[in-house]
Amino acid sequence: MNAIEIKNLTKTYDGFSINDLNLVLPSGCIMGLIGENGAGKSTTIKLILNMIKRDGGEIKVLGRDNRDGFGEVKEDIGVVPDEVGLPGYLTVKQIGKLMSLTYKNWDSNAYEGYLNMLGLTEKKKFMELSKGMKMKLGIAIAMSHHPRLLILDEATSGLDPVVRDEVIDMFSEFTRDENHSVLISSHIVSDLEKLCDYIAFLHNGSLLLCEEKDALKDEYRIVRGTRKEIEEIVGAVGKKFTPYGGEAIMKKDSVPEGLESGPVDIEQLFIFTVKGREGELKM
């Protein structure tokens, strides 16, 4: 079963729209949603959670349409939004109690365990926590009711590199169970590269590509050469020029003979793909 299935999703605002988005997150996998600010990552996540109404298309989450009896499905979803919206006057302990009254499967022991692991104290009020601590609490809440699907919107931003690494390990551990899946959006592409099985690029509300990370890395190469050599390349995803030469990203089997090529990382692929749509990169 797929954890998330999106078909022909559309949503139009004044000056922005999600256009005919198709996306599938298989169970047991982690998908990273990459996009620049305003690309539509948060809008897509809100549409998946039915927080905003879609104009067209279909969204199925854990096998159910997200407009039909979605309350039950939400028992199996853990969400960490870009801003964890909890009342500032509640203590971490009271928040645990609040969540135990909200989720049928709430596990107080698991919550305490996550609090200890993430260095959170129960007596602190939510408003006394730093941005990173609030995010950690959001992660603890999302994980403590044993969800089958985690949806994380910029959840690792605001965390220091050490904690980010720990959190990424937590998510990896979470998907060891093949019924568990994660959809995560982030600006920190290196985190997603470390964590994800699938990568989806969003740009101006459109899905540029959505593929397995390893396949992507295997499929594309970064090519370096003189300005003239790079200019002559046809069919590159994107090109970038410096005073000393140029770089292009293209499919492995299209790399011209005689040019130096190397493996590409996801961040490069994303930047070149987006910029390739907007015109050549220049430095």
């Binding site: 309350g71 028992e75 979803i77 969400v79 801003e83 919206g85 909200t102 049928k104």
Partner: peptide
């Protein structure tokens, strides 16, 4: 206060209709 704290958005992602 719920609106200011963005609780409405957060609770909308939970099984709270």
């Amino acid at each position: 206060l719920d609106d200011k704290n963005r609780w409405f958005q957060y609770s909308d992602s939970m099984p709270i209709g």
